[in-house]
Design a protein around this nucleic acid. Structure first.
Lengths: 198, 198
DNA sequence: TATTTCACATACCTACCGTATATGAAATTC
DNA sequence: GAATTTCATATACGGTAGGTATGTGAAATA
């Protein structure tokens, strides 16, 4: 068929809008991004945007969901590479720190996301990074590796520590020097959840 | 003198604007707060606001600084009540969690603050909460209570964990049930920084 | 008392978000 | 396959808000 089907066109336009928004939000921040500029860069107008996403918040939610999903799968893979489950949890945490050094992640997911969409635990598309670490923590608790703390609480604390560390590193004068310090401190902190030997 | 001196008037007006902004930002969020409404509630106009704070961001910075200062002094007092320095650090962390349950603190300091002003470590008025915990951590490292990790990194991780925990608690269905879980997990996590016995 | 300063008010401009309406090409129906 | 309906996107409009330029009147100064 020469002309694409309607659903295909719509899916493509949605993707283009999300891509343009992702770029614009990352560069100018959510508040500073103009819907007109955004849509024009995607070769569309605001009409398409409002039809697909309802409003500016809806567009941000879609962008955040995309990035969050990418981060979660990548962290999952990183953690799965380790044979020892405990090393897996640490690797996952460090992976979050390193991924969160990306300005795009910082601006969109860590700063504007919570401010506009509220706490990550109740984002429209449940924060997949949080779910991922929660599952891993719960598994380690079952295996008797971690202290029997609440899995949701532990996951949230680990995640909060890691992502805040990334913001701190990025804001520092020399991120390269600071990253290892953060990694070391994070591993020390996380070891507090371990059962038995320090 | 019947008429107040100029500097007194200006200080009073600044305080009124900050108070009105604090209320408005807390209720409607930074983006949703209107400068006209704000200043009207303070019995002034936008002229006073721009003269005193430069722009909307400047006003937010002043409000954040005020709240941050209140939090830091309160945390400092809470920590000082404990005789054991280690207990003091834990108490301070828990105090941050509890203070951050205040909707005003959440909305202004934890959500809008970082999104608008950037990372807390480089706020116009250096984040006093961070400085407070950093000093306490450094002291404990000197005393040989904590592992010799980087004090800034450790403080940032602890702070991030505590404040994210508060956001999580507040967003949960029953904060009262969740708070103790978060406290327990936080103390477990923090123990990872201790030197020697678990 | 005359003059200057300056804290604040007023007026204006521009940008942008959201909505209501229009349009034209698929999709459906007969 | 022609007519009709659907609907994804475009266009037009209104209201609001933030920043700036300018005005003003009272306190400070000389």
């Amino acid at each position: 068929m020469v002309a694409k089907k309607r659903t295909e066109m719509m899916a493509e336009n949605r993707a283009r809008l999300i891509a343009a928004a992702r770029k614009s939000f990352a560069e100018k921040g959510f508040a500073g991004a103009s819907m007109d500029d955004l849509t024009a860069q995607a070769g569309l107008t605001r009409g398409a945007l409002y039809h697909n996403f309802g409003d500016k918040r809806g567009l941000l939610a879609a962008v955040v969901n995309q990035i969050d999903g990418e981060m979660a799968t990548r962290a999952q893979k990183t953690g799965a590479q380790k044979t020892d489950p405990w090393d897996g949890l640490l690797a996952e945490g460090v992976a979050y720190i390193e991924m969160a050094l990306d300005p795009e992640v910082q601006r969109i997911v860590l700063l504007d996301g919570p401010a506009v969409l509220g706490d990550p635990s109740q984002w429209p598309s449940q924060n997949q990074c949080l779910i991922e670490t929660r599952n891993r923590v719960a598994q380690l608790i079952d295996q008797g590796v971690l202290k029997p703390v609440d899995a949701d609480a532990a996951a949230r604390l680990l995640s909060g520590a890691a992502l805040n560390a990334a913001l701190w590193i990025a804001a520092s004068d020399s991120p390269a020097d600071v990253l290892p310090k953060a990694r070391e401190a994070f591993c020390a902190l996380a070891s507090g959840l371990r059962l038995g030997q320090p």
